[in-house]
């Protein structure tokens, strides 16, 4: 049962805007909830995007494969949100957390919310995030927080399969036809500047680092860059330069696409508040 009126996730600041989460250290319990929420939001938003492919993929086998990946992300979101809900003493249900916040309160990284675009755009993003997620969740699976470690361990298995798939596709598209080469190259060019945000430490993560709950993202950047360089070069593609970088997701400052994603995803909960489905 979802009540019609929902508490704010954090107490609003002076202008009704949540206080910035980027700066300063949060008390550890609040930091933990913020940290897990952010991971849940990353999963939900990308799962929602990938589910848009259902029935539209280039052929049936691929339709089934993309749906599998989407389901992995949605399942992961459910697990993270369940933990957030429990950390809050069950005051908010999983679905309230998933569906009843406005854009400013979602903490997902920008790269996850960008529109699916064409198949090249989707696969370029997948390679970038899969090549990040596999080593990230491997490290997180050794978190001192057993709950997080367990979710991460499952994500490692999923990410291994996701990375194999996205890597294969990037190689095929890069080395396929002139058209596919141009499309996948332009996808990497368009998305590259959203990647640095994956390696930026938010305030909550900093606060959870010493206790071994969170892991240091920033330390993973060099390996990621070198792996991307290897795959792109094998795919006969040019690795984009680091001329630009855009961020804001962890502070709830999103692209304009985010509001539309939420409007669609939240339609039922907003139109029929407080009901069981």
């Amino acid at each position: 049962m979802i009540p019609a009126r929902v508490e704010e996730r954090t107490s609003p600041g002076r202008d009704g805007v949540p206080p910035s989460r980027g700066a300063g250290r949060l008390p550890s319990q609040a930091a933990l909830a913020e940290f897990v929420l952010a991971l849940g939001d990353d999963s939900l938003v990308l799962g929602q995007r990938l589910s848009e492919w259902c029935g539209r993929a280039p052929f049936l086998e691929e339709d089934i494969a993309i749906a599998n990946v989407a389901l992995d992300y949605l399942g992961r979101a459910e697990k993270f949100y369940r933990y957030v809900s429990e950390l809050g003493g069950g005051r908010r249900s999983v679905d309230e957390i998933a569906f009843l916040r406005d854009s400013r309160a979602y903490r997902n990284l920008l790269i996850f919310e960008l529109p699916v675009g064409d198949f090249a755009r989707t696969m370029a993003r997948q390679l970038m995030v899969d090549a990040f997620h596999l080593p990230y969740f491997r490290r997180l699976s050794r978190s001192t927080n057993a709950r997080i470690a367990a979710i991460a361990a499952k994500a490692v298995k999923e990410s291994r399969y996701h990375l194999k798939r996205s890597r294969d596709w990037v190689l095929r598209l890069g080395d396929g036809t002139e058209e596919s080469h141009a499309k996948i190259q332009s996808a990497f060019d368009a998305l590259w500047g959203y990647c640095p945000e994956m390696f930026a430490m938010a305030g909550d993560e900093m606060a959870l680092l010493d206790s071994g709950v969170a892991v240091d993202r920033s330390a993973m950047k060099t390996d990621w860059e070198s792996e991307m360089k290897d795959v792109l070069s094998e795919a006969t593609l040019t690795t984009p330069g680091n001329e630009w970088a855009i961020s804001g997701g962890r502070d709830g400052v999103h692209t304009e696409h985010h509001g539309y994603l939420l409007a669609e995803m939240q339609f039922m909960q907003r139109a029929y508040p407080g009901l069981d489905w």
Partner: peptide
């Protein structure tokens, strides 16, 4: 819209 993908795969 998937034709170019299938073509790349065949290539």
């Amino acid at each position: 819209e998937g034709e170019w993908v299938r073509e790349a795969m065949r290539a």
